[in-house]
């Protein structure tokens, strides 16, 4: 069992010298690894580690009926499973508000950036393709938001696309799911008055406010402030700048992993 418990006092003491518990500076990511295609039964899959946080995302593409307001395109459906295998802070049972928030924030970033070409998911008037993205926490050490987004994007970018023949789904000789863009997200937490990028589990436990910003090269695509605290406009400015700055690193990690 791996346990590390730190006090707020200790974090404050360290941050006075500009260092975090693991000797990172405030705006540095932990080591990132991305591995794709590790679950070949899924149309697309990826395993991402962010320090000691590990998540696995899987994509399945299935036939469904078109939504009334979007009769000519398919959809993406994102879920996050905060499995109790990943931490003793997760309980078995139906999705918690925390899990639902994570899945919706990740979903918005992907949707708003038009990552998946949903028009290409149209089959006929009655049928469209739906891309299901399921994100599993395997080991929790903070920042499931960014790890989950990386895994979802890497899985989508390498996802296959079944065929629809004679009213049946055929999962042989599959093509590729059509992807328009790559989006990423940067999550910040304020701990003892300091804004920290990519908070680990201990830092999340002591943070009173959190912000996730999803973006692509040009636009901010989704934002979510979480927890009871607040930010000043100046702090928001700083985090947006930092996000555009850091997302280049994240995009290149993904591109490297998907062989682009």
């Amino acid at each position: 069992m791996y346990t590390k418990i730190i006090t707020e006092e200790y974090i404050r003491e360290r941050l006075k010298n500009g260092l975090r518990d693991d000797s990172r500076s405030p705006f540095t990511y932990r080591n990132i690894t991305i591995k794709t295609g590790n679950m070949p039964n899924a149309e697309g899959s990826a395993e991402v580690t962010l320090g000691n946080t590990t998540v696995i995302a899987g994509v399945k593409v299935d036939v469904g009926t078109p939504l009334k307001d979007k009769p000519e395109e398919g959809s993406i459906i994102t879920s996050a499973e905060l499995s109790p295998m990943a931490s003793d802070k997760y309980e078995p049972g139906p999705p918690t508000p925390e899990a639902i928030e994570i899945s919706r924030v990740i979903d918005r970033g992907i949707r708003a950036a038009n990552v998946v070409d949903t028009k290409s998911l149209y089959i006929n008037e009655e049928k469209v393709w739906n891309a299901y993205i399921d994100i599993y926490a395997v080991n929790y050490d903070g920042n499931i938001f960014d790890a989950g987004t990386l895994a979802a994007i890497a899985a989508l970018s390498t996802s296959k696309m079944p065929r629809f023949e004679d009213e049946k789904v055929v999962r042989e000789n599959m093509g590729k799911l059509k992807i328009n863009a790559i989006s990423t997200s940067c999550t910040f937490a304020k701990v003892a008055g300091h804004i920290l990028l990519d908070p680990d589990g201990n830092e999340e436990a002591f943070s009173n406010v959190r912000l996730t910003i999803a973006n692509d090269e040009k636009y901010i695509r989704a934002m979510q402030k979480g927890l009871g605290g607040s930010f000043t406009p100046k702090e928001l400015d700083q985090m947006i700048d930092m996000t555009f700055n850091k997302s280049a690193e994240l995009r290149s990690s993904i591109k490297h992993a998907i062989g682009d």
Binding site: K60, D62, N130, Y132, Y136
Partner: peptide
Amino acid sequence: CRYTMAPFSSVEEHGKPG
């Protein structure tokens, strides 16, 4: 004990979670 299957675990359609 809790045994579960990920919704993407099978070659066939997307499974129900839980």
